[in-house]
Design a protein around this nucleic acid. Structure first.
Lengths: 398, 398
DNA sequence: GGATTATGTTTGCACAAACAACAAACTCAA
DNA sequence: TTGAGTTTGTTGTTTGTGCAAACATAATCC
């Protein structure tokens, strides 16, 4: 069986070259936005005539279109701009504890339409899937006529078996062994791809956000729990079955308080949004409101809680630096607020806990994409398949 | 500059296909040993005629040779066996605190010749490089006439800048910012590639040892310190500059004792060979002797030390499982002894510290390759470059 | 010894990228 | 305004690569 898998991959035939080059060109257009043919030639190293043919083929497939000549860029004949189509879309779905978002994201990277609904915590999975179907209908009818749907990408706060899209455990939602991909596929008739919400957010930051142009990235998102994403040498780390990157569940202390998955002394057990909120005397607030309140409060009690969390975060980051030797660390969610609360303390903690060679070149920054990050990243689950095989990948009329 | 890098890679031309297929075939022969042409066809998915041409070209390059027809394997005409040459060799170098090994390893995976010399701890780097030159002479003159040297692979117990082979820090040897690759290159005139000794050991176990046929591997080696190697999705993790995989320097506890790099509470600070040795009342012993002594001793004092170390190791492994979701964990050096001392306790610790979805499929086993592992892995530093470009890679007559 | 089966070999073909020559569209300077 | 210089797009040809088909070869099975 393992042989079967490899068989198709190891050798390369004639058409594999074409597929690879189409994929490369489309990927560049997708990621860099409108780009001139000549620049495509420079980036790929392919001949002008080859680029011509490739772009023509992609145009026929409907994935890109050629605009008018670009603004002047210097001497010589102006080059034609190539842009990714807004008519090829992926559906992004993000179910959370108390709400659900369904959106259409175009290959050009635009969130075309977004539908959102709130429901009480603990709502049944089947009801949520029904809601997905309903919202999807609204999203589809809002699309331009002629638009084509490439598939559905779903971001779930939990551990996903990447192969078949089963949610093994989503502690906050209370889901255990839920075959969500299959359920949504049956409800909608579209191909469905699942991944962890933090991995998806990482992917978005890498392609469009704070980690753009970096090949080795650590991403940490603080929500109710702490999720993580890792990119090494340009590829997303998933592990053998898709459960990897659980950076919040790394034990860094002897503290025996459990995190949301029941593990003790982990980063998630020490760096807790709710502890900050109760120290600040807040209720159910947004990340923005939390940040505002935190940064304006230097009372000893709050400082103490924040410092404890910052120290733990620094210790965790030090570990990741030693393990991954990344170029950049991106902090999102309420971790952003901790970073701004005492940047120096955090970086000092990081330095103390890491080997100097690995530490020296690391950049720490905050996430750039807000709530749209998850949507863009989920869409990427679909687009990365489309990009891998622009000719063979099938789309459905909206 | 970043564009320059990518330029050559992104697009694929005609000849890239040939290079890729040559590389694939040679890689299979190298890794799987003597293999029939027909099997090569099955594994790569390439046509019989294509395999013919590829094997012929590799034969002309001297990297493989075709033997007589194989032993019967069923019906039909027997297939010709293709084997990797023993005449293409890499030089493996392994400098340690008190000794130095220089060996010749063939593309077929055989250690052809090995030279070893002892010296006092603290010996000057320049003297060691001189010794390398001397031993290399002996190794080269022991090679068959006609043999060709592809380059030198060096395994160093420390942090290596992968790009230019500078040893940033090797705590045990007391080296700081040593441009070892350049020094050895000047001494020998051969191309030199450096890497961390644990990464190199990991690579060897993956290709020839306990992690063969696995794509997601965690490797931990206990020597004076603790080194690590990681393979994800079939590729070795190195990080942005080559300092990654420092799995021993991951903080897992509030304990404030430092490890050999000065970091507190890390795995390396808690799991220490010398503590085991002093608990056993031994002196300067080999791993084999240590294992023998340990397994035969269940006195309370020894049990307590061992258990403490086993618990720390279990905690560390749990972290790695959560981060990497590996298929297999390979333990080498004196960690092997801890594993055998109380396997159940170790696995229980691992289970307690990891998420069940990631934990369920993980296999824990011990390293298969002894001291030859480092040599095979170092040679792989050279061979992986040769394999990547069988035509363009230049070799030197021995 | 003939049928069957699997592999190696040879030849012609199809396809994709590269190359070369030319046309087109712009800038710049006089 | 004009012509030289520069860069890009287009077209037809060349080259390299894998593939398919027909045939040859060497084993097993009956």
């Amino acid at each position: 069986m393992k042989l079967e898998e490899t068989r198709a991959k190891l050798g390369r035939g004639r058409d594999a070259v074409r597929q690879h080059n189409l994929s490369t060109v489309l990927g560049l257009v997708h990621q860099l936005g409108p780009i001139s043919r000549s620049k495509l030639g420079q980036l790929t190293g392919l001949n002008r005539s080859t680029i011509s043919i490739l772009v023509e083929e992609l145009t026929n497939l409907g994935t890109v279109y050629e605009g008018v000549a670009s603004a002047r860029e210097g001497l010589g004949r102006p080059s034609i701009q190539v842009s990714a189509s807004d008519d090829v879309v992926a559906i992004s779905i993000h179910p959370e504890l108390e709400y659900l978002v369904v959106a259409a994201v175009s290959l050009a990277g635009n969130v075309l339409h977004e539908e959102r609904v709130n429901y009480p915590a603990g709502t049944n999975v089947h009801s949520i899937v029904k809601e997905i179907g309903r919202l999807l209908g609204k999203v589809r009818s809002a699309l331009k006529p002629g638009a084509r749907v490439a598939g559905i990408g779903v971001a779930v706060p939990g551990q996903i078996r990447f192969g078949d899209g089963v949610v093994r455990l989503a502690p906050h939602l209370g889901w255990v062994e839920v075959p969500l991909a299959t359920m949504i596929q049956q409800e909608t008739g579209l191909p469905v791809y699942l991944d962890n919400d933090a991995s998806v957010g990482c992917s978005a930051e890498r392609i469009f956000g704070a980690a753009k142009n970096f090949k080795d990235v650590i991403y940490l998102w603080g929500g109710s729990g702490i999720g993580g994403g890792v990119v090494t040498n340009g590829v997303q780390l998933r592990g053998a079955t898709g459960y990897g990157c659980e950076l919040g569940h790394v034990r860094i202390s002897d503290f025996d308080g459990p995190d949301y998955s029941g593990l003790a002394g982990t980063l998630e057990s020490l760096v807790r949004r709710e502890d900050l909120i109760s120290a600040l005397g807040l209720g159910n607030v947004s990340d923005e409101a939390l940040e505002l309140a935190l940064l304006g409060n230097r009372t000893p009690a709050v400082v103490e809680v924040a410092n404890r969390q910052i120290d733990a975060l620094g210790r965790g980051l030090g570990n990741y630096v030693n393990i991954f030797n990344p170029e950049v660390i991106v902090l999102g969610g309420f971790l952003r607020s901790l970073y701004f609360y005492d940047q120096e303390r955090l970086l000092q903690g990081l330095t103390n806990g890491s080997l100097s060679a690995s530490r020296e070149a690391v950049i720490v920054r905050t996430a750039e994409l807000g709530s749209s990050g998850v949507l863009l990243g989920s869409a990427e689950l679909v687009f990365e398949r489309l990009l891998a095989n622009p000719v063979g990948f099938e789309t459905v009329i909206a």
